[in-house]
Design a binder for these strands. Sequence first.
RNA 1: GCUCGAGUGGUGGAAUUGGUAGACACGUUGGACUUAAAAUCCAAUGGCCAUUGUGGCCGUGCGGGUUCAAGUCCCGCCUCGAGUACCA
Length: 938
Amino acid sequence: MVYDFRKIEKKWRLYWAKNGTFRADNISSKPKYYVLDMFPYPSGSGLHVGHPLGYIASDIIARYKRHKNFNVLHPQGYDSFGLPAEQYAIQTGQHPYLTTQDNITRYRDQLDQMGFSFDWKREVRTSSPDFYKWTQWIFLLLFDHYYCNESNKALPIRDLILFFEKEGNININAACSIGTKQFSADQWHAFTQDEKDEMLLNYRLTYLSESEVNWCSDLGTVLANDEIINGVSERGGYPIMKKKMKQWSMRIGAYAERLITDLDKIDWPEPLKEMQRNWIGKSVGAKVFFQIEGYDHKIEVFTTRPDTIFGVTFMTLAPELELVRVITHPDQKGEVDEYIKKTQSRTQRERLADVKKITGVFTGSYVLHPFTGERIPIWIGDYVLADYGTGAVMAVPCGDQRDYDFAKHFNIRIKNIFKGISIDKKACTDKENIIIDNSDFLTNLNHNEAMDKVIDALEESGSGTGTINYRLRDAVFSRQRYWGEPIPIYYKNQIPQPLSLQDLPLKLPEVEKYLPTKEGSPPLGNAQKWAWNTKTRKVVQNKKIDQKTVFPLELNTMPGWAGSSWYFYRYMDAQNPNSFVSKEAIDYWKDVDLYLGGSEHATGHLLYSRFWQKFLFDLKLLPVEEYAKKLINQGMILGTSAFIYRTPKSNSYVSKDLLDSVEGFEAIRVDVNLVNSSDELDIDGLRKWQKQFEFADFKKHSGVFKVGREVEKMSKSKYNVVNPDEICHRYGADTLRMYEMFLGPLEQAKPWNTAGISGVYNFLRKYWRLFYKENTWIVNDKEPSKKELKVLHETIKKVTIDIENFSFNTCVSSFMICVNELTNLNCHSREILTQLTLLLSPFAPHLAEEIWEKLGNDNTLAYAPFPLVDESHLIEKIKNYPISFNGKMRFIISLSLDLDEESIKKAVLGDDRTNEYLKGKIPKKWIIIPNKIINIVC
RNA sequence: GCUCGAGUGGUGGAAUUGGUAGACACGUUGGACUUAAAAUCCAAUGGCCAUUGUGGCCGUGCGGGUUCAAGUCCCGCCUCGAGUACCA
């Protein structure tokens, strides 16, 4: 009998589906284990071989944990709102719902094919109203809360109102928007309702504000900072401009400190945590106020170096700042206006590109130094960013290189405040080895002393305070798109008003066109029915707005990260119509034990979801402050693109080995599926593939035409996509699963290379031959020999440790060694093979189930106990050794199963590694530490 | 520029965390079986030298150091990759 993987895999796929083998229960006496994958966006091109890498790894863990008697939650779903489906809709008119539906069907087929043990009863889709109802609900909760810096958590807005009624906002310590005006209790009472609502927006955790946003005109929408790479959009690479727009934002900045400190509580990859820390960008320093000469106004700056305050020789403001227009001296107005105009018209990319070019202009006004009273000129310059700190800096050219360059360029005075340090060539940015000079009461102090003293002095004189600043900016939450969650808000007198839970879900309206309206409103502006009747609490026709009861609804939708910020809780109770997740479900499952996904989400999804988690935790809706205890980043699988080389101005191509003979050749990408594993091109296939090659001329070398190779990201446009369906068809899912694990360490990025797959395939067939010779079942009931047991138990030990450490590539090697050795020993013992099958089942589940059944078991092997190595006799042996430690020599002996005291001594004496130094110095007393391997220290 | 991470055969990668470097697999070469091919099995496979025989020397990006012992630890370089970028 041959290993017929097609038959076997089909059989078990059906069996698992029919019997609901992997359904998880919310009530169980077993300990729980929650293994989560980052859910995919179902794109039109289907899965490629890179996608399943993480799913295979998590599936191995899920199956392993089931063997270890855990109640395992291992769900899957779809992040199904998104740009591509919408752009397809714009081009073809097909509703994004249908596109998404088709893609999901395709994804599901592909996922099923690979034998994942998902509990599909718990599937979620972010674009389903049953799901986004709760996304909208969380939005409303955010709208209804503010962040109290005193108790360090989110509190209801009604508490804030009570506070305002008593004392106004002067003494409140809460997160609020920059520039929020102060008012007293009396003033609060005098406000109209609209004015109150408007004021409250400055405090709500999600708020509407006019702010500078990243506008991408090619995509027709705004983008968040993490959606921009190198000044262009992550999707499509289009230019980004700064633009003022009224937008919803999330006050994630309120949680900055907790997002940093709680990183210490979770077992996530250190590089990823570091990325989050950098992104949040905490810096400690001081706020300083500078009085503007001739105005009743102060400029507030943030600085990390208040100790250098006596070195200030000018101020620089960001050109975007409102204040600039106010304080500009009439004489300078023309120049300033022109400069502002120039900076506004530049895209972010252009601005980044000429970072080195120093530009700026003098405003003609001055501030007064808080300690010396000196007149300090105010400049504007675009090296100062409007949205970091206060958009203004106190320039200390002797202590900051950019200030130094600016001063040199415009010939501004540079004052040296560092003792014995020359600043002729460049600024001194060192903090450790300096003594302050020329600085009044700070003279002769070092950095730390000066910091403390100057902050005290600033606070005493009322011209500043010690403070902490974060780079993290509030996240823009509006998107001018159709295919996203509608924001559950309507407008009364242009003031946003929330819907309530009973009104949800606010379903997406039908539109005729998916483009913005003629007036430039987002696509939802095309909807006929899209206004809110506050009496009936229903969506009604836009057209007949009765000013008293019918109000326009919000036209923006939520960004892609909204649904993905909490989806992992919905899996716990996916079909609950009454709550986002029931109390029972959440009390049982609590949090994610293992989360697997790519590190590209470090500053997006993985930060936003932590923010929402903390918010919902503050509201006591969730039991833990961090949702994922452990996270692993699987590395990307890269494609190996193939190139052919065209001789200039011709339709003639040369084989790669002839490349030296061609000058100025042009490399052209061809489909990797037309190239075999020895890099030889299928020329006939190529002629059929694209018209341009139909009559082309191909110069071979020694009878073959070879292509060039290059490793790149796998993508459709690079023609380097390898589809898992074909691999499954040729070798089977079990081979694919094992091969992807065998390819290298999980976390590492690695190029896909089909060449090695036969090794894994041969292994599975070799394994099969332990059970069958020709057509005969050859398993016997003989007592296993010591040697056979040793091989098995060594493998059990190795594989168990490796699975626990997510080192799956070495697991596969261990299996190969084991099977080779059992083959050499001619072992067909039922006992040995039963255990080996269990060991193998997380990796090659279909094959393992088939063998399990053939071995005479009635039930699925999915829940059978994982084999253990019995080490108790070793521990006994070890106990008999006298224990002591003296000296630093150390020997390591791999303890085989039947090693006795004599053998250990012999091993130490006979070890070649014990060189002359040790001969004759055998320790009198030994300490033996039972570990993976036994260390003998003497 | 800053912050991480990585450099091991022809290739992907092992190495019990300081203890025989190159496991396992691919590829290559030779052999067996076959009319032949495929499949399968066996053997060799880091480099250099020596082979009548045991063998010897070098070798984990480069240069130093610690140690009886270094791919692994320390110092200084080089190269590549990732993230971030006028953050005051």
